[in-house]
Design a binder for these strands. Structure first.
Length: 402
RNA sequence: GGGUCGGUGGCAGAGCGGUCAAUUGCAUCAGACUGUAAAUCUGACGACAUUAGUCUACGGCGGUUCAAAUCCGUCCCGGCCCA
């Protein structure tokens, strides 16, 4: 690759707006990339869940960008760190995971990532490592030695700890060790660059410190912006119902993006697609933001499910939600002769209990073939209901069959 | 080890003998308006029961009482302060 071309490619990555922090400095990093030196990048993720989300995808797509430049890239599975849980996420504290559980999660991950990370490239595939490989082998003396590189005050600088301290909530000693472990990952793999979300900078810097002290090497940390609504600053997350998971089927993935707020369109387009920036600007200018969002949803579905499927799903969306028609391809669910509608709703998962089903009916949320059901005691009989479409809420459809 | 405060529904957090299936906020669900957006409005939000109602729940166990999330005992767990 000639020098100009390289420079163009490097700047395309750096200027896209995904990477926001460069430590120690952006120029230094840029010069390194331009020098032609082959660098070792890594990104880590703890296997705490079966599904990855678009936030992971954003970061991993950047990793892939660097892989394509010819750099060595490692996807590190934090199977050891995952057993402790990053303290920033209270809920995951103290989860214990078996090796099998981790493998199981990762199998799902690989399936979700195969379209954005190249695991099978003949020359330079994405490498996968597990940090239990080295963290599990350290003995207590070695751990102490590592710990002696940091002070309690330094650890307390982390916002999360500081906050918990002020609120009188517990901080466990082992949680202090988390940055240490993540830091040691860098040492064990002898990396040049760690890529992480801005929420991980503290941990990544612990690694930078350790690299300096133990390897006399200047590890670079580059951090991506967390995907957040431009106007409100709201993050995408499961807890506010806006998380978009990569294991969704094409329809639901499209839908999940359509239900994002308008302020998410641009950050998602930048971070989770590779639509050229100029085109994104054009997109945003469309008179109806819905259209921009549909284009975004299309592009993202295309990445994970292919163009054909994306078209199909988009059409489905227009018909079902814009035109309010019934979808063509509805799942069938077996009903028993004279089965209670309420029981049936619970059975197919449209209501979490019989009471819930009853409430949905009372609140006009249930219809069969377009007719609202108002009688909660309705019985499903073959001659009256076979082949009809049950709709609960806006998005749940099922065909009743006997 | 001592002192002290606390453990309530998915989360946060009220209630401190009956009117408590438990105020409120967040999350969630249904409806209206829509663009499966935001904002707003309405309703719902332990389970079962068509209604009446029944059962299960305020850390565990036991007790007092006609009646306990609320009082007492005990055990478990946590915060803070002191050692």
């Amino acid at each position: 690759m000639d020098k100009n071309e390289l420079e163009k490619k490097v700047d395309a990555i750096l200027e896209r707006g995904i990477l926001t922090e460069f430590l120690p400095a952006k120029d230094e990093f840029r010069n390194k990339l331009l020098s032609g030196e082959k660098l070792k990048f890594y990104i880590g993720a703890d296997p705490t869940a079966k599904a990855l989300h678009l936030g992971h995808a954003q970061n991993l797509m950047v990793l892939e960008d660097f892989r394509k430049l010819g750099h060595e890239v490692i996807f590190l599975i934090g199977d050891f760190t995952g057993m402790i849980g990053d303290p920033s996420d209270k809920s995951s504290a103290r989860i214990k995971q078996t090796r099998e559980g981790v493998e199981e999660n990762f199998k799902n991950w690989k399936e979700q990532l195969k379209n954005i990370l190249n695991f099978d490239d003949a020359e330079n595939p994405v490498q996968i490592k597990y940090n239990s490989e080295w963290l599990g082998k350290l003995n207590f003396a070695e751990v102490l030695e590592l710990a002696s590189n940091f002070t309690v005050q330094q650890m307390l600088e982390r916002d999360m700890f500081d906050k918990r301290l002020k609120e009188g909530r517990p901080i466990y000693i082992h949680e202090f060790m988390y940055p240490l472990m993540q830091g040691y990952d860098s040492v064990a793999m002898d990396v040049d660059v760690e890529l992480c979300g801005t929420d991980q900078i503290f941990n990544a810097l612990a690694g930078r410190t350790l690299m300096q002290k133990l390897k006399n090497k200047d590890k670079i940390v580059i951090a991506t912006k967390l995907i957040a609504d431009e106007k409100t600053g709201m993050l995408m997350s499961k807890s506010n119902g806006t998380g978009v998971f990569l294991n969704l089927d094409a329809n639901n993935l499209y839908g999940a993006i359509m239900s994002q707020s308008d302020g998410m369109i641009k950050p998602l387009a930048i971070g989770c697609t590779r639509i050229p920036l100029a085109e994104i600007e054009e997109m945003i200018k469309l008179e109806n933001p819905r259209d921009a969002k549909m284009k975004l949803a299309f592009e993202i579905v295309k990445i994970y499910h292919g163009e054909e499927k994306a078209k199909e799903v988009q059409e489905y969306f227009i018909n079902t939600f814009s035109k309010r028609e019934l979808p063509e391809d509805i799942k069938e669910a077996q009903a028993v002769e004279s089965e209670n509608l309420i029981d049936f709703m619970v059975k197919v998962g449209f209501a979490k209990s019989k009471g819930d089903a009853r409430i949905k009916i009372e609140q006009n949320g249930v219809s069969i073939d377009g007719e609202k059901i108002s009688d909660a005691t309705e019985l499903l009989t073959n001659d009256k209901f076979n082949g009809k479409i049950l709709k609960v809420g806006k998005i749940n459809f099922v065909k009743i069959v006997f």
